[in-house]
Design a protein around this nucleic acid. Structure first.
Lengths: 233, 233
DNA sequence: CAAATAGTGTCTTTGAGACACTATCGT
DNA sequence: ACGATAGTGTCTCAAAGACACTATTTG
């Protein structure tokens, strides 16, 4: 038994992949440049040539959606790995792509230097962009409705970071409380008091210290995510 | 400029439409039969004939997704109206439909007797079912992966009811605190203390009283949803 | 008055916020 | 000692929970 033939919409995926890329300066962390980045591709063909867009592409009829997300991500940007992804939203407005009817299933991804091939070079037109620059300045223009999707992804992270442990997907296995706090403050866009205490139930100290070369201040403990705590997710 | 032709997956929508249908008994509300219901359709054709399924169907290439949800809902069940709907999740596993590749965009709907045509008769194979009966007893078998979608919808409501005002979409414009509490308790599946106080910031008393015929107890005030409170959504 | 629901008062416990304090490194 | 970050102690205040109490209806 088969379906009858009729004109079908195109199906694509798009992924909003975030990473953190903070740069520390001289002898201070406070003045560090704090960077929440998203992976985008500069368009080299019409329509919307020259604009940046989320990596993604058409879903084959015999391909699982998640496999398509990973495949297209690699083809367009050179990035692969095993990082956190979750479905975001499906957009299908009639006029969202001038070429025809396209329904796009978007995904949110969170990676860190241990969960993707960060040593490899990116494809020619792929680049990591500061999220807030992309959203707020008009130096970069996002193709199609990708700005909307990016905003939605950021909103999702902003919400879920408050009641889940997704933030840790942006951190390597071992991290300091300050590194973790940077992430929360970057995403929530505000200073957080008593962070150490709030995050305490989620983390576990290894009994190791991380000394930073040439930094003249107290080294911090190294922590990992606590497993088997009673979480809702 | 057009897309090239290639084999495309089928796109459908499915809607999980909830309503509340409590029956009061004799002279008491406490012992009332409390009913959270979902609208399902008995399948009359293969595959999975005889099972119940969520109303839905194929998206036309020139049809907005939300329009398709409403259209298919009406065609399959006879229900129409202007009630709350939101997108739930898009499922597209290769083997989820034996007839071929089907990607389904599911929606959650919440209605009440004022927001849909409840006076009209339902289509022959459509019916309202108690949600917990459907999920927990094995009297009803849900077709395809619709049980998973129904569980997901219930989970979504359960979560959002705690931090949004979606619950009020299950109530008519005017209601009593007890009616409202019934909904929260039905969905969260637990008794709630101090409910009146918790809901207070969301509701506003009209200065009217609802007397119930033959009920020998204090009549309650009538409330509406408070507008213009500073909400996040 | 009794039965049943509607609605309030108030005590206790818990957790969030503010912020001062101690600890530890390199120069 | 100083500058910078790491980490703790503790006070205050507001929200959540428990539960006893009052109010209003009809038979």
């Amino acid at each position: 038994m088969e379906f009858k033939d009729y004109p079908r919409p195109n199906i694509t995926t798009d992924i909003v992949l975030f990473r953190i890329n903070n740069k520390e300066t001289e002898n201070t962390r406070r003045k560090a440049e704090k960077n929440l980045q998203v992976l985008l591709v500069k368009r080299t063909i019409e329509p919307q040539i020259g604009m940046v867009s989320l990596p993604g592409g058409f879903v084959n009829i015999d391909e699982e959606i998640k496999d398509n997300v990973k495949r297209k991500l690699f083809e367009k940007t050179g990035v692969k790995g095993s990082f956190y992804i979750e479905q975001l939203y499906t957009k299908g407005e009639l006029d969202r792509d001038p070429r025809g009817r396209v329904i796009s299933i978007s995904y949110l991804g969170l990676c860190n230097k241990e969960t993707y091939n960060c040593e490899d070079k990116l494809n020619e037109n792929a680049n990591w962009y500061n999220v807030y620059d992309v959203l707020n300045s008009n130096k970069f223009e996002l193709a199609f409705d990708h700005k909307e999707i990016l905003e939605y992804a950021l909103e999702r992270v902003k919400n879920k970071i408050e009641y889940t442990d997704i933030a840790f997907n942006l951190l390597p296995k071992e991290f300091t409380i300050s590194e973790c706090q940077d992430i929360y403050e970057l995403i929530l866009q505000k200073e957080i008091l008593n962070f150490r205490r709030k995050i305490n139930e989620y983390v576990e100290p290894l009994n190791q210290i991380r000394k930073l070369e040439g930094k003249q201040f107290r080294p911090s403990n190294i922590y990992t995510v606590k497993k088997n705590r009673d979480s809702k997710f």
